[in-house]
Design a protein around this nucleic acid. Sequence first.
DNA 1: TGTTCGTTACGAACATGTTCGTTATGGTCG
DNA 2: CGACCATAACGAACATGTTCGTAACGAACA
Lengths: 220, 220
Amino acid sequence: MPALSRRERPAKPALTREGIVDAAVRLMESEGLQRVTMRRLAQELDTGAASLYVYVANAYELHAAILDRLLARVDLAPAPDWREGLHRVLRSYADLLFAHPSLARSALSLRPNGPNYLALVDTLLGLLAAGRVPAVQAAWGVDYLLQTATATAAEHAVDTKRDAEAEWQQLSDTLASASADDYPHLHQRAADLVSGTPSERSYWAVDMLINGIIATPTPH
Amino acid sequence: MPALSRRERPAKPALTREGIVDAAVRLMESEGLQRVTMRRLAQELDTGAASLYVYVANAYELHAAILDRLLARVDLAPAPDWREGLHRVLRSYADLLFAHPSLARSALSLRPNGPNYLALVDTLLGLLAAGRVPAVQAAWGVDYLLQTATATAAEHAVDTKRDAEAEWQQLSDTLASASADDYPHLHQRAADLVSGTPSERSYWAVDMLINGIIATPTPH
DNA sequence: TGTTCGTTACGAACATGTTCGTTATGGTCG
DNA sequence: CGACCATAACGAACATGTTCGTAACGAACA
């Protein structure tokens, strides 16, 4: 007595990588990323968790796939000034990741390579070209521009509950109490290490990277 | 009939954060990081997994603590040239993380703040000071020097099994097949995006960051 | 039409991280 | 000396990621 296959029902089409990611994004928007577990997602698709592994290697890859969908929302609109354009695009990208830091974590390991990610890279390359940055430097540099933004978002991937405030305060204390004998430079510049707002630092970081990319020729 | 408490035995001292991390490092060196699970570690200490949570917030924090111990091995020896010194220290740091990429992952989120990490930061600050880099720029820059090294290591945190070779080849293919219409810049510079050896790119990245830090004044 | 075979789906099982309520321990107070 | 109590330790339970062996399916083929 074979049970009626669930795949038969027309309303629930056969499993597809596309369909799985669709459902994952939908689930994320309705219940939050933390609810997007293999089991919950499978339930949504009226199947078992194991079935998903045919189309998705693991949970990280699923997250990366979700991220690529979200990347469609990055603002790639042209800007009058190329440098300002880089700031805008990267801030838009960072804002997206900050909203879902655990996606950033996955993105670090399994770099996405979907169409939206390619479009993002392409736009960055275009902006650097507009700034007359030599080709190879620009190509290498794009990696680090994105990596820095991604890593900064990933840093906030734990405990949205526990204030970043508290953690930051603790770092500040650790630095302030650093012995001048053991850590002379640290002691002297403790204040500088924690100065500035996150947004000031991010903006500076992008400028810093651009300047570095321009100033540093690649070998051969 | 109260069972004899395991804490009584003199050979196994009462639980301590120090002792837990010690055991974790020992376990890592004998059986590999992947074997350092809460249960296995508890077994090593002749207790239950739940007991560890009194001293360690979660598995990530444990990893971060292990990393700080390992950080003692980073080569902080003074170098004749400050710039070369930065290269050496950061390569030493990166080598360490490459040996245990999952530690790098943890380090990204829960930045370590143990003595060895502080010594590392202090050394970097000293080298930048030797290069006459303005104080605040140096302070902000150190964060990104370390973040880049950490993130680069973290990127390799999945599947040491599956060749990075294969993944890289796939990326290369994706880029090569990128439509010239949809992704003009990407198409044009596909070769540059994957050129260079990892070590060439890392070296370039450090130079690039140093140049950027020097060239970019902080606000106020 | 009946059989074979590769693929897809899936239930059950295992290892892990984490939490909860309970128990034991050792010191303190009456 | 005996009752009490804060804290450490723990066993059991739960949710999750992942794997394995098996069953259903459908297409190619005899």
